[in-house]
Structures are given as C-alpha cells and as structure tokens.
Write a protein that binds this DNA or RNA. Sequence first.
DNA 1: TACTAGCTTGACGTTAACGTAAAGGTCAAT
DNA 2: ATTGACCTTTACGTTAACGTCAAGCTAGTA
Lengths: 134, 134
Amino acid sequence: MNRTYSISELAEEFDVTTRTLRFYEDKGILSPQRKGTARVYGERDKVRLRLALRGKRLGFSLDDCREIIEMYDPIAGNKVRQLRRLQDKIREHRQVLLGKREDIDATLKNMAEIEALCEQHLATNSNNSPDNNS
Amino acid sequence: MNRTYSISELAEEFDVTTRTLRFYEDKGILSPQRKGTARVYGERDKVRLRLALRGKRLGFSLDDCREIIEMYDPIAGNKVRQLRRLQDKIREHRQVLLGKREDIDATLKNMAEIEALCEQHLATNSNNSPDNNS
DNA sequence: TACTAGCTTGACGTTAACGTAAAGGTCAAT
DNA sequence: ATTGACCTTTACGTTAACGTCAAGCTAGTA
C-alpha cells in the first residue's frame, strides 16, 4: 500500500489542474517526491491538498492555508515555546472560524426570511393568476 | 432622521477605503445618490455594503456578493416565475453555505485535536524541562 | 481672495491565483 | 525508429480587487 500518484492522477482526483499542483508546490503547500524529474505524490500530499482546498473554500489565501496546514505538522521538537505559540495560533484561528460561522448562520437566517416572503407571495399570487408566466 | 453619509464617513465606519466604495459602485453593489457630483450614501447603501463585506469574509467574489444581495431586493413585480427562480437561488445558496459550515466544523474539530496534543505534550514536557525556552 | 479639506474622474500599477503556450525530455508500444 | 502519452521548466497572459497617483472642481474659512 502507501499508494503514490502522478500529477495528473492527483489533479483528476481533486478536480484541479496540474498547474495548480505545481503552483501549490511553489507556495510550499505540496512537496512531492521525485522519480527522476517527475513528481510522485503520496498520502501526505493528499492530506495537505485536501486541507488547502478546504481553506480556499472558506476564503483563506494560499499563504494562510500554508500556515494553517503547518499547524498539523508533528510538533517540532516538543519545545515549550513552540507549543505555546502553536496554542496561540490555534486560538486565533478558532476565533476567525467562529466569526465565519456566525456570518454563515446570519446569512442562512436571512435566506430563510426571504424564502418565507417568497412562499407568502406565491400563496396569495397563485390565487390571483395561477399560471402567470409573463 | 434617515441620516446620510459622505464617502469618507462611510469608508471610516466600515474600515474600507473610498476607492473600495467607488469600486463597489462600479460593480453594481452600491448606488449612492448625488448631491451635485458628490456621492451621498443612505441606509440602503449601508445595508448592502454590510452584506457585501460579509459575503467577502465567506470567500465569495464581488459578483457573487452582488447576486446574493439582489436576492434581498423587493420581489420584482411578484411574478410567479421570478419568485420560483428566487426560491431556487436561495436553495442553491443555502447548500453552499451549509457546505462551508461543514468545512468550518471539520476544521474546528481538527484544531481541537491539535490543541489536545499540544497540552498533552506540554504536560509531559514541562515535567522534564520546566523552563525550556531554547 | 487665497487656502485648505474633501470631493470628483481618469488611468496606470499591483498582488494572488492561476491559465496558457512554447520547447523539450522519457518511455512504452507499434 | 517514430509515434503518442505523459512529464518537465520557463515565461508571458489574465482576472479580481483594489492601490496609487494626477489633475481638477467646490465649498467654507482666514
């Protein structure tokens, strides 16, 4: 096991282009092995790519994504200072995430309100002109 | 009441630049009144700006934001077709938002896991070398 | 009246996140 | 041996979302 993937295999699996994978490598997000000159991606790369794309969906920049992903790395040397800094980063990031979730919930609430108005209008309107499609 | 705002007042209140406000106008997000040539912003603009910035925080493009904001507009003519289309848009958008919320929750979970590891390491490590700050 | 503060419209510059084309290497199959 | 399917690097192009001048209008104040 511990399957490996060519660049086009990985690209297809995640529905991105090979250009994107090379670009993410430049950005320090991916770091595939090499077989000769060709890139060979493993599990670690898949995990990091998944995290990067998730970060992007939430509106983070690739630099942000890289920083976030680095939090997942084995805790470097277990040095107390590093651990404390990691804790701080986690708390910061959590606040950002909670903020985004509040934004989402507020938006969902708005959508529900609009939807209610919609159905209300549809109810009264369909009585007056059932097949109005002008 | 129904206060109005100059461009710099509104910019300061929302912590954006005047350039941004003019740009959003080009994008069809804001449409202030004019007093002579100067822009005069009202409540409607404030609401739309707030919605736009919220959308941006969630990773939507300005074009997306504009589309979303337009959902809030008084339902045009109450025509059945338009109402149905609005319903569809709302449902679509809701799915996107729910997806993002799942991403957030997954990330929060990850953060909690890392934090746990952190504290675990700190517990054992502080016994071995209480003031290790190298 | 001259000055300052704040407004306007261009218009070119910048950064992020890729797209896209060019030119060429490699390896298996025909 | 050449074709085709991949892979590589290099490098210029593109879009979104503004930043940053430049040049000029305008209203209130010293």
